[in-house]
Structures are given as structure tokens and as C-alpha cells.
Amino acid sequence: MSLGEHRDEGRDGVKQSQDRTESPSPNLYASVKNELERPPVIYRKYGPGTQPNHLHPQYASSNSRAPRHPLISLPQSLGEITGPRFALSLVSPSTADLTGQQGGAAIGERIFVSGRVLDEYEKPVPHTLLEIWQANACGRYNHELDQHDAPLDPNFLGTGRVMTDEHGQYRFKTIKPGSYPWRNHYNAWRPAHIHFSLLGPAFVTRLVTQMYFPGDPLLPYDPIFNCTADEKARNRLISSFDSDTVIPEYALAFKFDIVLRGRNETPFEV
């Protein structure tokens, strides 16, 4: 099914995207200057220990890929506090249902995943794109580089996309992914997880993360899950069983809220 069929023609923004004939501003810097006379907008720095370091020796492939020099501080300017917007045509009912994209029913335990995307000030992030990918119920990705000796499911691609609504809420249907072995260390297995990618409102709000499942016995052994020093921060990557949204006789449900960096309300607060 073509993505275009699901365009929401009711949203003016989508329709206007075909007609962009904006002429260059005769006095560009005057208009930018006006913008700059307002208090500077700054996205908050991450809390100490709440993000992984690039180098994490227990995660073997970080050793040749993590930079050795410290990061250099870059003051946020227009390019950092703006970011692309995405049209509703990128999502459709089929991108929000990973269990039936190929005609037949995907094999596995059917689940709903839902949650809210908020900023650090608890403000919902509306109309933001979530890109999702995951292994199938047997722990195999539909990707040529995945050589794990587990069956592929012809009815499961493991690719999804949803957009948050005006309250920052999202929801999609999938199957619970399986665990799988990897070669990081002897007898290494990844806990079951779903990959999430979000861009949020600005270049600096980008987030790629993984959602885990409660009670997974592999979590204490996983160097990727454990790369974040702050225990509370890493435990927030574990979804919660959500009895309120379980569909009787049909599917279990898990809840996973996502928090993006927040835009300072007060100038100069860093």
C-alpha cells in the first residue's frame, strides 16, 4: 500500500508542502536579529551519568570506534535548536502494525506497545516521528547481516513507524522479539529489545534507544543495557507491563514513556 494513501489531507501543513515558492528574504539578517533579541533558547545538558560514554570497553566494538579526544563544547545556535518536521504521509495503519505487513499473521506473542513522548519539563512532544525496528519472535532480524541460526518469519519484517498525537501519545502493535546470541564475549546474549529512533523538535533532541522487557534474566549480563552509569536512568529503558491496555483474549501490552531533552524556559539556565 502506498504511503500517500494515508496522507491526512485535513492537515494544512501536509498539503502546502508541495507548494514552496518562498522567495529569499531581502533582509535576512534583520529578521534573524529579531529572533535573536528574544532570550536565547537552550536545550538542557544531559544529567550526569544518565547517558553512556562513547567508550565502554565491555562493549567490544566501542574500542575501535569511540573517539579518544574529549568532546568540544558547541554553543547551541539556530542549527542546533531547529530540526526537520515530518509529514503524516510517513506513517499509516500498516506502519503501526508490524504483525500483518506481509499478508499473513506474524508468528509470536502479540503485544501492544504504547507510551508518551515528553520533554524534561513533562510537556508532551506532539506529532513527532518514531521509527522502530526489532528481531522476530525467534531472535532473528530480517537483515542480510544477521546470520543467527534461527528461522526467519516471512510474515514479519520488523520495521515500523508511528507519529505521536497532539498529547505526545503513541501506540503500535507487534510481536514480542526474541533474545539472540552475539559475539561480544563468550556466550553473550542480547535481552529482548525493540529499537526506537526519534528526532524530536531540534537537532539536539535526537534520540536512538532500545526498549527492554520487565523481568528479562539477561539484563544484568548485557553490556549495552548496562553502559549507562546511573542505575535509575538505565532502568527507565525497561518497559512496564500495562494491565490497563491489555486487550482481553487478544494481546498483552507494555508501556514505554520516552523523554527528550527539554528547551529551557528561563534564559541562561544551563
Binding site: 544518565t50 524534561e120 513533562e122 536512538v208 532500545q210 523523554v259 527528550l260
Partner: peptide, 15 residues
Amino acid sequence: MSLQATTWQTVGPFF
């Protein structure tokens, strides 16, 4: 501020 931004995880090999 009452919440902390979600922690990053690698995109992995199958992004």
C-alpha cells in the same frame, strides 16, 4: 525540571 532525558543506546548493526 522533573524528568531526565531517556538514555541513548546504540543503533546496532541492523538499523
